[in-house]
């Protein structure tokens, strides 16, 4: 009948939170909801990073994977950057885009893996790298993107880099864009993009 007040704290409030050991075991639980909560509960726990990285690789439920990545990305460390960087090459579109999104929030440790990614023989990986750089809040992003535009030999990588650079495009980049059109005269989209950017 009507509005009721809840005076006592909910029972969970009094229960002790699960220990790190329990949460780490629960990362492999059969119930996705249990895995999801365990991943979130491990926020800020450095010793859980290796287990979380293993979970990203194994996880098939996108909801759980999102939770694991939310926790992992807050550890802006070399181990996490390297671990997630490897997934940019994944055949699973959900995994590679989720990894790119997480990397874009890690400005401390991602710069160290950029040179390796820019040299990756797989152009799809380099396209994903442009996606990371588009959102990475780091002053070096512009320079790497400019380098991709000037040097990458795949037109899709160059157009992805141009798109990522556009929000911070400066006058000094205009020649770079014109040169890109010269290098790929047969790519209609690249030409269109550069013309739009220079207008």
């Amino acid at each position: 009948m009507g509005l009721v007040r809840r005076n006592a704290p909910p029972p969970e409030e009094t229960a002790a939170p699960p220990t790190t050991g329990t949460l780490m075991r629960q990362l492999d639980d059969a119930d996705p909801d249990c895995r999801r909560e365990a991943a979130l509960g491990l926020g800020g726990v450095a010793e859980a990073v290796p287990a979380l990285l293993r979970r990203v690789a194994a996880e098939t439920d996108p909801l759980v994977r999102d939770a694991v990545l939310t926790t992992l990305a807050a550890h802006d460390t070399a181990a996490v950057a390297t671990g997630l960087g490897g997934h940019l090459a994944s055949d699973d579109a959900g995994l590679r885009t989720a990894a790119a999104e997480a990397l874009a929030t890690m400005p401390v440790s991602v710069p160290a893996i950029i040179p390796g990614l820019l040299a990756d023989p797989d152009h799809d990986v380099r396209v994903m790298t442009a996606m990371v750089l588009a959102d990475l809040p780091h002053p070096g992003s512009q320079t790497w993107l400019a380098q991709m535009i000037a040097e990458d030999d795949h037109p899709n990588v160059v157009t992805a880099a141009i798109d990522a650079l556009l929000p911070s495009l400066e006058l000094e980049h205009h020649d770079l864009l014109r040169a890109a059109v010269q290098r790929f005269p047969d790519d209609p989209f690249l030409r269109f993009t550069v013309e739009a950017a220079l207008r």
Partner: peptide, 11 residues
Amino acid sequence: DVNMPKMNGYT
């Protein structure tokens, strides 16, 4: 498109 943040093209 296929590669997009938040929700990829297949999903």
